[in-house]
Design a protein around this nucleic acid. Sequence first.
DNA 1: CCGCGCCGTCAAGATCGCGTCAAGGGTCGT
DNA 2: ACGACCCTTGACGCGATCTTGACGGCGCGG
Lengths: 229, 229
Amino acid sequence: MSSILVVDDEPHLVRTLAINLRARDYTVETAGDGRTALQSFHDAPPDLVVLDLGLPDLDGVEVLRRVRQVSDVPVIVLSARTDSVDKVEALDLGADDYVTKPFAMDELLARVRVALRRRAADGGSSVAAVRTPHFTLDFAERRAVAAGAEVRLTPTEWSLLEVLARRPGHLVSQRELLREVWGPGYGRESNYLRVYANQLRRKLEPDPAVPRYLVTEPGQGYRLVVSAD
Amino acid sequence: MSSILVVDDEPHLVRTLAINLRARDYTVETAGDGRTALQSFHDAPPDLVVLDLGLPDLDGVEVLRRVRQVSDVPVIVLSARTDSVDKVEALDLGADDYVTKPFAMDELLARVRVALRRRAADGGSSVAAVRTPHFTLDFAERRAVAAGAEVRLTPTEWSLLEVLARRPGHLVSQRELLREVWGPGYGRESNYLRVYANQLRRKLEPDPAVPRYLVTEPGQGYRLVVSAD
DNA sequence: CCGCGCCGTCAAGATCGCGTCAAGGGTCGT
DNA sequence: ACGACCCTTGACGCGATCTTGACGGCGCGG
């Protein structure tokens, strides 16, 4: 299920939120102030943030800004302030929703579902690691393990995988792959992709002749299939 | 810029909304009731819908449901009802946001920006997806599912469908199809269209012998029928 | 009733795109 | 300076896809 970070300085509200969210099978982390929130966010990036604007140390707006510098996670802002100026500011800073206190719990839960539903539709943005039944990729450590054995991947191979893994299961066009890996100015050199897709398959696929994870969409691009079906 | 469909039965509110949105360079269509809204939606699919729940003919919820059957466009629901039960229902039906009347115009505009910003981040194309009771087309992902099973379409097949899906339900002339898919310089090769229409029907239609979705207009062109009724 | 035009259908040949391999050159560390 | 590693590039075979032509059915008008 999804993980949610709840940030609010009222312990009672945090508790109530956590209980309700956990009852829906979400994994919940909590924070009572801005610093702890950012700390927790960096330690274990959640799938969604519920963020109160009135925090004792940092301004909630500042927390939102910092989060947005490094991530696109959905953020639902809570606030006692009903002035539309505050709402507009938070929304334009990158908040996905703005709920004024007091609020009905079931409405907030519905808005949580909306935000997560959308993320699921996008296919989840960036990932630090990819795990399939046959191989594992750790991008931070640049480590790949296939069939139990460590595999060495070249920089270009990592780069290509990284672009593909950014949107697991999604089609990425040849042009986009070439531009992202080799730089702008590239876009027609599909033979590069052929060579590297080939090498990656040899290193990662259980049967390189029958690609199961690194799939070709003829005439379009490639896709990294993660879901085990 | 983006196009927005505004649906509300209060002419004054519609006017105000339209003026404010147009001032921000959005293209605005309006509708005063559910039927007109669905009509307009099918004729020219917008990038976003602002939908009032209290409509004279159809229930706004019903409009939302029908829209969701064929599209993933962002929908912002407006309503005078503040009960959280109504909000939860609309949000779970696929609404992206729920704003209670009366509202501050700048807040609504901010929420419009949020919804469109997200669409842009996804890499929103002109046509995201086409859904019928029998098959689903996802153009961004190049994925087609018919009768529950995934179907493989060739690049030319996708290209042809894309042109047809740009104006769902509308007749597209043979000349236009040929020029859009095969390039300028083409326009008389109607046999190409016959071959590909045939292939698409075999892959997508429930009964290829009796085309229901990919309809021929003899001597004119083709049309992609999406609406079930 | 017959001929014409248009569409659906099929199949064969041409073409395109991908997987595959290997050679050559550049770069980096030793 | 040498070797190991990596990136680039070209060539080749094969399967999928596109193109092309032919045939039959249907509807419409003469």
